[in-house]
Simulated assay, not measured.
Amino acid sequence: MKILVTGSKGMIGSHLVKGLLEAGYEVVGLDRICNQSCDGRYFHYVVDLADKDTLQFIMEKYKPDRVIHLAALAHAADGKKITWEDYKHLNVDCAKNIFEVAGDIPVLFISTVDVFGFTKGTVNVNTPMKPVSNYGRSKMMAEQEVRKKRYFDIFRFSPVYTDTVKRDIQKRYYLKYPNIAYQIGKGTEYEILNVNVAVQAMVDWCSEKPKNTVRIIKDTKRMWTPDYIKAEKAKGRAKIVLRVPTWMMNCGYAVLRKITGENKYTYLLNKAVHPLRSE
């Protein structure tokens, strides 16, 4: 089987390509970053996903059996401001291009648990989406587009980390990396996702029949912040640890939300006060 992967040189994409090749698949990788290793069972294209004609050419040339759409705009880089128009263009309009040129080829769309927005209690795949961030909002819109396809599946990833790249989970215990950490009460548990678990789920999907369903992908064990802070201190980081009483965090969150409403700032506090719990 031949698998087409968008965002193939990204943090998750590069691990996925390796996993697919090790599983015996041929891989066609699309990314904005150049790669010289276009031989053997890996074929790489530098392409703008807004270029629908080129996407159609690649699709017709290789005729992939499956498409995994990973490419997305998630975070600001080098302090650059990202507008809603940027998110919509890359995460919605370009995703729509991929879905359309794929035709009846099954597509796995990688989404995010950020589509849930403010949460309290346990969520599942049927919980209404109420995203707060532009990232979550754009992913929700892309989910709506992929649902128009005949064959699809949606994976909503928890925050992803590798052994060396932990930016998405460090927000849960760092005020300012690498010196100032924080701990709420006795500690907090968060649902996270190791990149190897994510890759295995995507590789397994390639051999399964598409179900037109949504799945939340996460580690079986939650992250316990005191353990991570302890490990950081052992490596000479987290030199200052601010300990915030749980009651103080809850009161501060309640007051700020009452005054300012639901916005990106209260959303960050919501993640600390009401960490996501999924079935």
Score class of each variant (00 low, 15 high):
Gly24Thr: 08
Gly7Ser: 11
Tyr42Leu: 01
Gly29His: 04
Lys96Cys: 14
Val5Phe: 08
Tyr45Phe: 12
Ala23Gly: 02
Leu20Lys: 04
Lys9Met: 06
Ser111Pro: 06
Asp39Gln: 03
Tyr25Ile: 01
Val67Asn: 08
Asp86Glu: 08
Thr112Ser: 15
Met59Thr: 08
Met59Trp: 12
Leu21Tyr: 01
Asp51Glu: 15
Lys18Tyr: 05
Ser37Asn: 10
Lys2Asn: 13
Arg41Asn: 14
Cys94Gly: 15
Asp114Tyr: 12
Asp51Leu: 13
Val27Arg: 00
Leu73Arg: 05
Trp84Lys: 08
Asp53Gly: 10
Met11Ala: 01
Lys18Asp: 09
Gly79Trp: 01
Arg32Ile: 14
Ala50Trp: 01
Asp93Gly: 10
Phe109Ala: 09
Pro64Arg: 00
Ala76Phe: 00
Cys34Leu: 13
Tyr62Lys: 04
Ala23Lys: 14
Gly117Val: 03
Ala74Lys: 03
Ala102Cys: 06
Ala77Val: 09
Gln56Ile: 03
Ile110Asn: 13
Leu55Thr: 08
Lys88Leu: 08
His69Thr: 12
Ile58Asp: 10
Phe99Asn: 11
Gln56Trp: 00
Val67Gln: 12
Leu108Cys: 12
Leu70Lys: 01
Ala76Tyr: 00
Gln36Lys: 07
Cys38Tyr: 01
Ala77Ile: 02
Leu55Gly: 05
Pro64Ala: 00
Lys61Tyr: 00
Leu20Glu: 05
His44Leu: 02
Leu70His: 07
Leu30Pro: 00
Asn35Arg: 03
Ala23Leu: 09
Gly7Glu: 06
His69Val: 11
Asp114Phe: 08
Leu73Met: 05
Val28His: 10
Val5Asn: 03
Gly103His: 14
Val101Gln: 01
Lys63Ile: 04
Phe109Asn: 06
Ile110Leu: 14
Asp65Leu: 01
Leu73Ser: 07
Ile105Glu: 13
Asp104Gly: 05
Asp39Arg: 00
Phe116Arg: 04
Ile33Thr: 10
Gly10Glu: 04
Val5Thr: 11
His89Tyr: 12
Ile12Gly: 10
Leu16Trp: 02
Ser37Gln: 07
Glu22Tyr: 08
Leu20Cys: 09
Lys96Ala: 15
Pro106Tyr: 12
Cys94Gln: 14
Ile33Ser: 13
Thr83Asn: 08
Gly19Asn: 06
Gln56Cys: 04
Leu55Val: 04
Val17Trp: 06
His15Ile: 00
Arg41Phe: 11
Gly13Lys: 02
Arg32Asn: 13
Tyr42Trp: 05
Asn97Lys: 15
Val107Thr: 15
Lys81Asn: 02
Leu70Glu: 11
His15Tyr: 11
Phe116Val: 08
Asp78Asn: 11
Cys94Asp: 07
Tyr42Cys: 02
Lys96Gly: 15
Cys38Gln: 05
Gly29Thr: 04
Asp78Glu: 07
Ala72Gln: 05
Ser8Asp: 09
Leu16Met: 02
Leu30Asn: 04
Asp104Asn: 15
Ile105Gln: 08
His75Val: 10
Thr83Cys: 07
Ala72Val: 03
Arg32Glu: 09
Lys9Phe: 08
Asn97Ala: 13
Val67Ala: 12
Tyr62Trp: 13
